[in-house]
Design a protein around this nucleic acid. Structure first.
Lengths: 152, 152
DNA sequence: CTACAACCTGAAGTGCAGTTGAGGTAAAGG
DNA sequence: CCTTTACCTCAACTGCACTTCAGGTTGTAG
């Protein structure tokens, strides 16, 4: 089994495009060394890093943050258990927060199906609609937090 | 209480910027009529529509899809119970799917904390890393679905 | 050894979701 | 009345995450 991959091979194995791999390299997310002919060669560990990148981007985490998380992972070799643990915990928290928010929203929407949006009292969107009118209401803050949830 | 709002008032009440409101109008998400002096005036129902827009965008749903959902809601007046129900159901489903996916990812990450990413067998990222090598594995498909989950 | 696929770089282009700026008009308070 | 604040349009700009293109080089299979 090959110890090193060309960019095309990594593309196939990771499911990413060659151009994306170039792009990620410019952004510092992955690293390569070169052959005498200036072609990229990747260590196996790049696949692990790319898996992390994909996971992050599919969770809507900006590349800059993924890069930050990866920066603490040693390049060129498999992350240590500790490195890995730290990152997992971090992302797990982000996920947790977003899941909670989504779940709340879903449940409120759910309630809405019953109310038919005709009752001012029960409909979350009714409450949402005018944050100046009723400052400090629940759902509003919910969404605000949602907006910041993966920035913090 | 005012029956009509200026763009600035809507901006304050919705928490959105004036430029965003102009933008949404160009995109057909909201509608306004004009004063004799060509200034925008909004019905109260715009706040409800904007609440829906915000909810959607904060869930990562592209504006085009939010627009599509809103297109079935009659303009100028409060959506009927049926209109509203239909939309709630649709979005609820989207949310459901995304929550499930996120939860699965979180749990796999969680398992990872224990494994320390040193065991090939258990680590989801290990399995993710090489989709050509082990075609058809679980987590891979998971992520793929995640990518399409709010397109379908 | 030659053809052809895969690779290289840098610059420009894409789509989304808005924001910013210029140059001008409307409305409200004193 | 006049000034200040809010509003108008249209065009251009931003940032993110890539993709596409042009023009040239390398690696490999026959």
């Amino acid at each position: 089994m090959a110890r090193e991959f060309s960019v095309g091979q990594v593309a196939k194995r990771s499911g990413l495009s060659v151009s994306a791999l170039h792009f990620y390299e410019r952004k510092g997310l992955i690293r390569s060394h070169r052959t005498s002919g200036n072609q990229r060669r990747y260590d196996r560990d790049v696949l692990r890093r790319l898996a992390i990148v994909r996971m992050g981007t599919e969770l809507g985490i900006p590349l800059s943050e993924v890069a930050e998380a990866l920066a603490r992972v040693p390049v060129g070799h498999t992350p240590s258990a500790d490195d890995w643990r730290a990152m997992s915990v971090l992302w797990h928290e982000k996920l947790d927060r977003r899941i909670v928010l989504m779940t709340r929203m879903r449940d409120e929407l759910n309630g809405c199906i019953g109310c038919g949006c005709l009752s001012t009292a029960n409909c979350p969107l009714m409450n949402l609609e005018d944050h100046l009118g009723r400052e400090g209401s629940g759902p509003r803050r919910l969404l605000r937090e949602g907006k910041d949830s993966y920035i913090s």
